[in-house]
Simulated scan of single mutants.
Amino acid sequence: MFKDLAEATRHCAARATLNGLMTWLGEAGLRAAAESAGLRAAVDQHAAAIRDALGDPERGPGVVALAGYATGVRDALIEAEWQLPPTGELDWSRAEWPTLRLIAICSLARDCGHL
């Protein structure tokens, strides 16, 4: 029973992490990608790299693995002192690698049913 509770807690925390990322950046980024073939292609390339890195390129990553990956990217960006401008001020046609990677995480989370 404890194992089931621990697993449920991990899944709940992972979904909360992904939901927060989606609210912060993903919704705006995915809307922009829907309107720009170039941005969508870049996001898709990042999503493919993430699927490969997490070991399940066919079905996509599980919620806990994807949230862990998102947290790792976030932590690395904080350590590098990288800051994202407000989404309303972003030039989506010049989105930087971190922005693309984070949007790709949101895309995978949505496509895999984790949100």
Rank of each mutant, 00 (worst) to 15 (best):
I105W: 03
G68K: 07
I78D: 06
A28L: 00
L108E: 02
A13Y: 11
A13R: 15
L115N: 00
E89P: 01
W92K: 05
A34Y: 03
I78G: 06
R59T: 10
L25N: 07
R31M: 08
W82C: 03
E79S: 06
S36E: 04
A6F: 13
A95Y: 02
T99E: 01
G88N: 04
A14E: 02
W97L: 13
L100H: 03
D4M: 07
D111T: 06
V73R: 11
L108S: 00
L90F: 05
C112D: 01
R101V: 14
L18C: 03
A76G: 11
E27P: 00
E58A: 15
I50S: 03
A41H: 14
T23V: 14
S36M: 02
L90H: 08
I105N: 02
A8T: 12
A6P: 00
E27G: 08
A48F: 10
E89L: 12
G72D: 10
L39T: 06
E27V: 14
T99R: 01
E7M: 08
A49E: 15
L100F: 04
E27S: 13
P57T: 05
G62C: 07
W97F: 14
A67D: 04
H11P: 00
P85A: 15
A104F: 10
A47T: 10
M22G: 08
P98R: 08
V73D: 04
A65Y: 00
C112R: 11
G68C: 11
A34C: 05
L25H: 09
M22R: 11
G20W: 03
R74V: 06
A53I: 07
L108I: 02
A8F: 01
M22E: 10
L100Y: 01
D111R: 08
R110W: 05
R10F: 12
A76V: 02
T71Q: 15
G68Y: 07
G88C: 05
E96I: 09
I103R: 06
L30N: 00
W97I: 10
P61W: 05
A32E: 00
A6G: 05
L18S: 06
T71E: 15
L25W: 04
W82A: 03
A76F: 01
A67W: 07
D52M: 14
A67I: 04
